[in-house]
Amino acid sequence: MNKLSSLGAGLGLKAEHYEAAIDCTAPGLWFEVHPENYMVAGPRLTWLEAIAERHPLSLHGVSLSLAADQLPDIDHLHRLRALVNHVQPALLSEHLAWSTWQGQYHPDLLPFPRSHEALQRIVENIHFAQDILARPLAIENPSHYAHLEGHDYSEIEFLTELARRTGCSLLLDINNVQVSAHNMGFDALAYLDAFPASFISEIHLAGYSQDANSSLLIDSHDTPISAEVWALYLHVLQRIGPRPTLIERDDQIPSFAELLRERDTAQTLLDSVGEHP
């Protein structure tokens, strides 16, 4: 069986949930972590090894800075490859953003103009990363909070070209689409209907919050998934068929049982649409 075909709905793995995660036997369950937290020996890596013995894993990176004007850090890539080889994740993904400048790391996933130059640079960066990792990456669509000038491509055109030129797949974050559609004034359904189904290897779902000083929605991952995002998710599944789906929660962490209920909702929707069309 293809490794991805056995994956249903998964959860982001939190330290406070390790014991419950190991013991959970929900069919199709998998767990995602940020690999940066597990790239050195210690208790976290020991726990991850234990989880990997019972459940499929996804490594979702936050620091390759693929949209930067320089190649990803080679030492970081070699450490990431060592972790990949060690735990053998079913999924490996990164963000379409930049977070490094002149050797300094920034704690944000920052936007960029989708120019011809940016496309060529990011294609080179993805090729470089995939060659060292010896694995294809899935690239996530970003959240947007302000208009930028200098775009030569729509976001979907840009993501499609990245996938075509590099062999990467795409991680469709539906909460990012909802947040960006609200903030930038576009139609979320139209965006999702145009998203290239053949390149989607994974879906993310999360909750958002509203900025205290404006009408902006923030991709905060600190609330339950909204009714709007659930509706968009079902719409996508009915168009493209099931894909491995992650429930993200990174702040205001509830009990494992509460997260599992959200996960079970996603699994029910996955089951309702049957096989890939």
Rank of each mutant, 00 (worst) to 15 (best):
Ile126Cys: 10
Leu66Asp: 08
Asn183Cys: 07
Tyr105Asn: 11
Leu109Phe: 01
Pro196Tyr: 02
Leu66Arg: 05
Ala197Arg: 07
Gln178Val: 03
Ala118Trp: 02
Gln88Leu: 08
Ala194Leu: 11
Glu149Asn: 10
Thr100Glu: 06
Leu91Val: 10
Asn183Ser: 12
Ser58Met: 15
Val87Ile: 15
Ile156Ser: 04
Leu159Lys: 01
Glu149Leu: 14
His182Met: 14
Arg114Val: 03
Leu83Ala: 03
Glu124Thr: 12
Ala188Met: 10
Val177Glu: 12
Phe195Cys: 02
Ile132Cys: 12
Leu80Ala: 01
Gly185Ser: 14
Leu83Trp: 12
Gln130Ile: 11
Asp187Ala: 15
Ala129Lys: 03
Glu117Val: 08
Ser93Gln: 13
Asp193Lys: 14
Asp193Val: 08
Leu192Asp: 08
Ile132Thr: 15
Phe186Leu: 05
Pro89Thr: 03
Leu171Trp: 00
Ala163Ser: 14
Thr100Cys: 09
Glu117Tyr: 03
Ser169Val: 06
Ile126Leu: 09
Ala146Arg: 10
Leu91Lys: 01
Leu83Ile: 07
Ser65Gly: 13
Val177Leu: 09
Glu161Asp: 12
Ala181Thr: 02
Phe158Gln: 13
Ala97Met: 04
His86Met: 10
Ala197Phe: 02
Met184Gly: 10
His116Ser: 10
Ser99Glu: 05
Phe199Ala: 14
